[in-house]
Each structure stands twice: as C-alpha cells, then as structure tokens.
Design a protein around this nucleic acid. Sequence first.
DNA 1: CCGTTTATTGGACAGCCGCGCAACAAAAAT
DNA 2: ATTTTTGTTGCGCGGCTGTCCAATAAACGG
Lengths: 201, 201
Amino acid sequence: MARLRPDQRRQRIIDATLAVAIRKGLGATTVRDVAAEMGTSSGLIHHYFSSMDHVLAASFEQAAQSDLDHARSLVAAASEPADALTALMEGYTSDDGTTMQLWLDAWSEASRRPVLQEVSRRLNLAWHRLLVEVIERGVESGQFTCADPVASAWRILSVLDGMALQSVAHGEVVDHADASAWSAAAAALELGLPTDRASLD
Amino acid sequence: MARLRPDQRRQRIIDATLAVAIRKGLGATTVRDVAAEMGTSSGLIHHYFSSMDHVLAASFEQAAQSDLDHARSLVAAASEPADALTALMEGYTSDDGTTMQLWLDAWSEASRRPVLQEVSRRLNLAWHRLLVEVIERGVESGQFTCADPVASAWRILSVLDGMALQSVAHGEVVDHADASAWSAAAAALELGLPTDRASLD
DNA sequence: CCGTTTATTGGACAGCCGCGCAACAAAAAT
DNA sequence: ATTTTTGTTGCGCGGCTGTCCAATAAACGG
C-alpha cells in the first residue's frame, strides 16, 4: 500500500478501527480486521501502536472526543442557558447511535481494560463537567433552580445514558423520539423549568 | 467427574458460567473456562447447550431473573407504595455490583447476539413493568403524583442504570452512597414526593 | 547518485476458540 | 445378570487471536 506519513497512517488506523468497531463491537475488533479495512498488512498496526488495547482506546477516544467537542461548540453558541442545555442534550443523543454503541462497549470493557477505562472515565467526567457548567450558568442567571449542580448533572446524564442504552441494546423498546422527549422532561423537572407539556402529547 | 442428573448438571454449568463471567466478562467467557471451573471436560457443555451463546444467555437470565424475583418479593412485602418504591430501588442496586457488570455486558453484546438480546430485553421490560405497577399503586392511593407512569418508570430506571454504570465501569467516580441517595432524590422529584433533604447532606 | 532511514510486507509463533465425535463408564431397564 | 440408555471423556478439526521479526521498498539527506 502507498507509503504514508506517520500521522496520516495513524489516523487511518484509527478510522479503520472505528469502522470495524461499529460493525463488530469494540472488544471483538481484531488486528486483522483493521488491516483488512485499511487494505494493508496486519503487521503495520504494531508499528504505530504497542498493543491492540491502545488501538482500541485511541479509536474510542477520538470518536468520543469528537462528539464532546461538537457539543461544546453548540453550547458555546447558545445565548440562553436553556438553549445551551437543549444543545448539550441533543449533542449527546443526536448521532445515529454508532457512538453510543461504542460507549456501551467501553463501559462494559472498562473494568477489565485499564487503558480503555482511563479514556472512558476521563471523557465521562468531561461531559459531566460541561453539564455542571451549563447548570451553574443557568442558576446564576436565575433561569434554573438547582441546589446541587453536581448531583443534578449526574442524574441528567444518567437519564440520557439509560435511554440511549435501551435504544442501542433493545432497538424499539424505547423509541428515539420518546427517549428524547422524556430526557428533556427529566432535565426540566430537575432544574425547575416549566415543563413543556407539548412534548408529552 | 461424578455423573449427575441432567437438571443438576445444567444448573452447575450455569453456576460455573456465572462465576467465570463475573471475573472475565460475559463475552469473554469460553467453553473451556466453564469446564475448568466445573472440573469437567469441555465437551460436556455441548451435551446440554446447542451453542455457547445459549450458555451465556441462560446464565445471564438466571442471574437477572433471581434479582427480579427478589425485588418482586420485597415489593410485595411493602405495605405502603413509598416503601415498595424504596424496596424496588434497593433491590435494583443492592447487589455487590456483580449482576450489574453482567447487565452492562449484556447490553453491550445485545445488538450482536440475538439470543442474549431477547433475554436482556425481556428482563428489562419486566423491571419496567414492575416499577410501573408500583407507581400506579402510589398514584391510586394519592401518595404519588404522576401523569405518565410509563415515562416516569423509564426515567427512574434510567437514572438507576446510569448511576450503576458509572460505579461499575469507573469505580469511585460516583460513590455508591451518592448514587443511592441521588437516585432516591430523582424518584422523589419524579413522583412528587417530599424531598428527603437529610439524604442530601 | 548513493547511503541511510523507515514505512510496509507477509508469514511464523504459540496459544486460544467453538464445535463434533468415537470411545468409555455408570445408571437404568429388562 | 445382561442389555440398553445416557452422562462423560479427551482429543481432533479448521480457524482465529496478538505479537514479533526478517525482508522489501520507498522516501530522504548527503
């Protein structure tokens, strides 16, 4: 295969890994799968990563970090705290569910793969921090009512995770529209916003 | 190894599978692992199960069904709806986290293992139904305020799942006591109960 | 143009995987 | 007491796994 510059090849390995991981699962993605996806030999991968665990961790990190960056820009673009909250929640769920399957795989493997656990944990905390900041901004401006932003942020994130989980694992058990509306309702309740009754009908 | 009656052997296979699955993960549990755990040959397992997927599904089903039965009995023993709610939530989280790791594995593998997906989905829906019944009982007796028990049940379950998830995957990111208190607060908020301020301090 | 560096190859290595099957042994039926 | 049934063994099959390494080829510095 064409000879690439190290950073480019590294990026292609990550992209190929994500393509496979979405099909087969993060834990079931093998060196040969990735090589075949790239159209190169399998030995090449160990020239850039010390172990397959690091390939998986780096790939998951890129996918999750990209979503987080996207959400951050949406939040930064929002003028009102309520809009920022909506943007964050949509950014969390908006994707076609592929990233969410990766999150599920990462959570499942985390306690047994230290490298993956570190990444998963760090990015989960980053999402939590982002949400805490949005909540605190809303409280300062008097639009949100919240005594414990840290606890509220964990509760809201948990609802988002739980709903997404049902959607990814069990298909139509929880409809995507339902999940979205119900999550919004939970956040509204949590932060003392007027409940949007329209979304419940 | 001693010759056992079919139902006893089948049970031992399931028990051995769970012992291994908790250590290595559901998806990483192999026929040879289970055989070694039982102290028998590996061929024996295929005399009772048509494939390893069915072994995993049957094992997860027993673990999850057992927790569900336990919660059902706790709920049935409660005189007040509020007590039933507390009992259900404690029954969901009470275990030492081993079953929760299995749930995480099951959710992660569900979309790729149809046999496991069917079990996971069925038991998830059973938990949801149980919670809906508790909520409806509370609403009838006037102790709970809830316009949409189905939606509320999914939100409460999601919070429980999300909190447990952090605890299992990332260790001390969310303390077990915090998770328990925060989940209870979410349920109280959701069902219009007086918030137990003591648990927030 | 040549020597050095390095991206890439392709296969070897030891070990694991699910599954199937002939042989064996113990319980049950006759 | 002998035949039949069936729980159990132990190994073989083809195929897969992560990792490593000598050989090759392409880019680059002189």
